[in-house]
Design a protein around this nucleic acid. Structure first.
Length: 486
DNA sequence: AACCTCACG
DNA sequence: ACGTACGTGAGGTTC
């Protein structure tokens, strides 16, 4: 699966699919043994042994045949380093993290649940009061009909592409002040999300034997080379809002241990500096300046001390936009400024960092010529739509051409760091364990006797995973829980 | 299963 | 006129 993921990151990687594509062979599907999914599905132990023999032998046979083909292709495409030195060793690191698990304070979550459920129910009643009738507040369809057809909060509601009223946060924010019910619906949604996705869901996933939560890291899902996390997803635990932060507090260290969190500072922008070779951006990072303030100073032609908060905010949004393949529309939407002003900001940005502009143009050109772009370590992303005659479709591919090498190189780098950290932890025989990866951040359960050593080890390996034209900076912290460690 | 919404980097 | 910043996973509703 991983070999095929490296070769064709956008496609599927299951054995049935690969057998069809590479061997022109249709495998026995599991449903043929145990039936389709549903309550009548059999357990494997009740299947006829003769059938199981056939099925299991085929599994081994096909896997071996695929190995012969895929290892040759890895070699032909010069992907041996990425495959043998990064992805394959990483597999063990991920397995160890999954097995270790992370400790969750379910008592704290239970207390939060009781308080917030009461709050949510009270808000629900207020919503009914304000509407004058009851309806399902968790149904976007009903919320839309209530706001736009019955209460007529505004004349015309924005519609989704299927013709339903759009009621997402952005739309509701725009309706604040038009009717008191809008605030209440937003409050209700916020609480509902926290309760159903995290507070009430996580305790149910605590393993009875270990007392911890064990996520699955998927190594073959994200087209850019990132990992993903499921059952539960521990890569989207709240942090931005005050209420959400409470949930992070429930991720704790084990006894006699602390939670250690280490994250790369501005890694994708540093990779942009490296790949583009832009002297001014490189200089800003080398001098250790606040990159957003430094960017603002250059765009607005001011000394850095005279940069206002608003200028920095604009430059920060522009910096993020650059990573995503900036558009005038996107920047104006996010900053809430006219398109003309967004265009001027982007022009100023490119004048400030001319090689960044060149890099972006080059990425698109490379994609057009080759049909793919790649990371610093040769991880490819194919962009079939790059020459599409549909400008919307093509625009999407173009932004991918810019973003994929940046996001993907960052993914490569943290994977290298993880492998190196894991090896050193074994070699130095530590009691501490790696527990979570969140794209640019690594988290550890660190024994009290190893705090200084682990801080050093982790920072060293993350910052020195690879030598770029700019330094890689890591912020590290410890605390009794994930929130405090950040 | 599709859709909408929203949590994270 | 359309539809636009990148990558994910999960819960809930609706069909």
């Amino acid at each position: 699966m991983i070999a095929h993921y490296i070769l064709q990151p956008e496609l599927r990687h299951g054995m049935d699919y690969l057998a069809d594509i590479y061997l022109n062979y249709r495998t026995i599907h599991i449903e043929e043994l145990i039936g389709g999914k549903g309550k009548n599905q059999l357990n494997m132990r009740s299947v006829d042994l003769d059938k199981i023999i056939e099925y299991a032998a085929e599994d081994a046979d096909i896997t071996f045949q695929l190995k012969q083909i895929l290892e040759k292709e890895i070699k032909e495409n010069k992907l041996e380093n990425l495959f043998y030195e990064i992805e394959m060793p990483l597999m063990q690191v991920l397995a160890a993290m999954e097995k270790t698990g992370v400790l969750i304070d379910h008592v704290a979550l239970k207390q939060s649940s009781e308080i917030l459920t009461a709050d949510m129910n009270a808000i629900e009643k207020e919503v009914y009061q304000l509407a004058g009738f009851e309806f399902n507040v968790t149904s976007p369809k009903q919320v839309g009909e209530v706001l736009f057809d019955r209460l007529k909060v505004v004349d015309k509601g924005k519609k989704t592409k299927t013709g339903q009223y759009s009621t997402n946060e952005e739309v509701l924010e725009g309706l604040r002040g038009k009717h008191p019910i809008v605030d209440k619906i937003l409050d209700y949604r916020g609480l509902k999300k926290l309760l159903s996705t995290y507070i009430d869901a996580l305790p149910a996933l605590i393993n009875k034997k270990t007392g911890k939560v064990h996520t699955s890291f998927n190594q073959t899902v994200a087209a850019t080379g990132r990992l993903s996390s499921t059952n539960p997803n521990l890569q989207n635990i709240p942090i931005r809002d005050e209420q959400g932060r409470e949930i992070r507090k429930a991720f704790t260290a084990e006894s006699n241990c602390v939670f250690l969190s280490a994250d790369y500072s501005q890694i994708e922008l540093r990779i942009m500096a490296h790949l583009s070779g832009d002297t001014h951006m490189i200089e800003a990072f080398l001098s250790g300046q606040d990159i957003h303030a430094a960017t603002a100073a250059k765009i607005f032609h001011l000394p850095i001390e005279e940069v206002t908060g608003d200028m920095r905010r604009k430059a920060k949004t522009a910096n993020f936009g650059i990573i995503y393949g900036i558009s005038v529309f996107g920047l104006s939407e996010r900053l809430g400024i006219p398109r003309g002003e967004a265009k001027e900001l982007i022009d100023g940005y490119f004048a400030t960092y001319p090689k960044v502009k060149e890099y972006m143009d080059n990425s698109i050109l490379t994609a057009r010529q080759n049909g793919w772009v790649e990371t610093l370590f040769g991880r490819k992303r194919f962009l079939a739509d790059i020459n599409s005659h549909n400008s919307v479709v093509r625009g999407y591919a173009e932004r991918n051409a810019i973003n994929a090498p940046l996001q993907g190189t960052a993914a490569d780098i943290i994977k290298i760091a993880m492998v190196n950290i894991y090896r050193r932890m074994i070699k130095e025989n530590v009691q501490s364990t790696m527990v979570l990866q969140v794209h640019d951040e690594l988290n550890f359960n660190v024994h009290n006797s190893e705090i200084d050593a682990m801080k050093r080890l982790v920072t060293e390996e993350m910052e020195n995973a690879i030598q770029l034209r700019v330094p890689l900076k890591v912020d590290v912290g410890v605390g009794v829980n994930w929130l405090e460690a950040h």
